[in-house]
Amino acid sequence: MVAYARYWKWKRMENKYENNPEERQEWGAYATPPPTFHLNSDKQEVQQNSPATLCVRVQEMLPSLVDNDGTIRPEMAAALFAHLAVCPTCAKEFEEMQRTVAVLNTLALQPLPMDFSGVIMHRIELEMGGLYAKQAPPATSPISQVQTGESYATEHITDFATVSQLQHTTVETSVTQSTLTAWQRVVALGAFFATLLVFLSSGWGRATLGASLQTARGWLRQIAQATEEIPLLGWVTGQAFSVISQSLHLLEETYRTLGASAMKGLFVDVVVATTVIVFVNGRKSQARKASTGGL
């Protein structure tokens, strides 16, 4: 066995290092049993590699070759095909195996005599009714909640509200559950504006903000330059970044030059922003109540 493996390794090395394409293509060279002078001289080894034993071992590998199930490496497959080319017994065996598989593969799926689903569901209802109690779908993720809610609405609810309204409700619920509550949002907003106030009320803060905006403008300029080679996208990106850059420049100058007057402006901004947020939230809650009928 060891000598046999050594022989195949030698044949591969021969092809690899001598770069002899004629021999590589000539599979017949692989079909020849290993010459005895490459093997150990004891009788057991010679008998193990006799042509009859070789055929037995080839035939052991033929099912895998027929199935092409990936267990035969390409070089071994080449060797097997080479043997089949010179050994009529093994070739006949291989051909019959292939033909058997081909005949078996002609078996076609039978058509169903009837649709069993109705009978099966009826039997389930009779024999196992109530095995799985109707319950809320598992809350694995907002997406699965939405999908399950849709299918449930499509199947079961027809007279209460339209399916689209229920879908809307499901989406709203999942979004509300997955984000912050109202008071958390107020705290986050307050923290944000407080930080901004600290920055704007000090000369150091204003210089930092201005420097940050300058850096941001620099990045935007680099991105616009990188994409300007692209025909349409480069133009669109250039225009968009030009507008953003100008706005940032204006802000930067404002933060750098304005002192206490920026504080007054910021207070006005806070009041306006808070009013807008409260108004939008109120409208959303009204719409939600209207769509669910007050439930």
Binding site: S117, A133, P138, Y152, E155
Partner: peptide, 27 residues
């Protein structure tokens, strides 16, 4: 997904599974 819905009590989901695989099982 259909298995999960069936376990949540939606019989229609199991009906879909039956229709999907009854031919293979029958054969």
């Amino acid at each position: 997904m259909l298995v999960r819905q069936t376990l949540c009590g939606q019989a229609n989901a199991y009906n879909t599974l039956v229709q999907r695989y009854q031919r293979q099982v029958y054969n």
